[in-house]
């Protein structure tokens, strides 16, 4: 396997009892994540970006389930390939926090208020290493310094509510990186933070990337964060990947009308008081996806074919995939 992580035909089901077929929250996701790659996943709320990443961690909350025929293959540090779908819980625990770790959106609620910072870092260490207490203390201290926390020695003894959001997010990053994982999933890590703090955290993540061999999956709704941190981007819409390309291609050779709409509604911001570009209508909710292209009824360039048949995700240029009939040879003429 050349990639660190290979997701094939991933679907996530919301069961509706025995009589009804499950609702597919995401469907047909294929993603490859390379070693040392910064992979961005962008989309609006409810597009399935977060649950896709929860599935990678084996952390789907009840009653969600990974659908039949899905595969998530991960290459661990020994070079061995492992299938995450259907893995035993004990095995998953060995991977989580050690090979794959995660940063959450709300630093204020992602740490347990009952325990000191040191206890929470130790927790991550104690399940994956055999360090003594003193060694763990030293490792935690060093890690906090790496994420640029001042007065690290004091902070270790503090409880989460003593620290600000920015500091807590640094602690979260420290916990996530302490076992030197191969993959870090960052689920909207700066959404809850103020702009200046967001800038600090993004800078920190960019710097840490130099010293760690970790691949990062950055989940966000903010194209600015993508522009700052990612090399390769997948755009999610209504439970599907609609476009996937290098970050420069996404911004400069945009192929899918949805991506284009998103970019335009952001970039037209700031042109003082002019009418903003908008994508009409609203995001369809899971279970109400059309059988054709899921973006068809909001698309300016919708054709008849779009309403009836869902376009496949095809490579339109090397490394640039798009799910749109406009970019599939023959489809436009046919219509």
């Amino acid at each position: 396997m050349d990639h660190l992580l290979e997701i094939r035909n991933l679907s996530i089901d919301l069961p509706r009892g025995k009589k009804l077929p499950p609702i597919k929250l995401v469907e047909g996701i294929d993603l490859d994540i390379n070693k040392k790659q910064n992979f961005g996943v962008v989309g609006e709320s409810g597009c399935g970006k977060s649950i896709t990443c929860n599935a990678i961690m084996g952390l789907l909350s009840y009653p969600l389930k990974v659908g039949k025929g899905s595969s998530i293959r991960f290459q661990n540090s020994n070079g061995k390939e492992q299938e995450i779908v259907g893995m035993a819980p004990q095995e998953l625990c060995k991977i989580r926090g050690n090979e794959i770790s995660m940063i959450f959106q709300e630093p204020m609620t992602a740490l347990d208020p009952m325990y000191t910072i040191e206890q929470q870092i130790n927790e991550a260490l104690s399940f994956h290493t055999n360090l003594t207490k003193a060694e763990m203390h030293d490792a935690s201290l060093e890690m906090l310094k790496k994420v640029k926390i001042p007065r690290a020695e004091e902070i270790l003894r503090d409880y989460p509510h003593h620290l600000s959001g920015g500091m807590l997010q640094r602690v979260m990053i420290a916990i996530a990186l302490i076992n030197n994982p191969r993959l870090l999933i960052a689920d909207e890590p700066t959404t809850a933070l103020d702009v200046t703090i967001q800038a600090q955290i993004l800078d920190l993540m960019n710097e840490l990337r130099e010293s760690y061999d970790t691949s990062v999956i950055m989940i966000t709704h903010d194209l600015g964060v993508i522009a700052e941190t990612c090399e390769h981007v997948a755009v999610f819409y209504a439970g599907q990947v609609v476009e996937e390309a290098s970050v420069v291609d996404i911004f400069h050779h945009t192929a899918h009308p949805y991506t284009e709409g998103l970019l335009r509604s952001v970039t037209s911001l700031g042109n003082a008081k002019k009418e903003l570009y908008t994508i009409k209508g609203m995001v369809p909710s899971a279970g109400n996806f059309s059988t054709g292209c899921r973006f068809a009824d909001r698309c300016d360039r919708c054709m008849d074919k779009c309403k009836t048949e869902c376009p496949p995700l095809v490579e339109i240029e090397t490394g640039h995939k798009c799910r749109c009939w406009l970019h599939i040879d023959g489809a436009v003429e046919e219509a």
Binding site: M57, L59, S61, P89, Q90, C93, K94, I95, R96, G97, N98, S101, M102, F104, Q105, E106, T109, A110, L111, D112, P113, M114, Y115, E123, A124, F127, H128, M172, I175, A176
Partner: peptide, 27 residues
């Protein structure tokens, strides 16, 4: 409590189920 983010966080760090229950959910 299971919906709390820090419980999810503990799971994502690789804490075993029994410990998640005792340490993070019990309180």
């Amino acid at each position: 409590a299971k919906g709390l983010e820090y419980v999810k966080n503990a799971q994502s760090v690789g804490v075993k189920t029994v410990y998640v229950l005792i340490r993070h959910i019990s309180p």
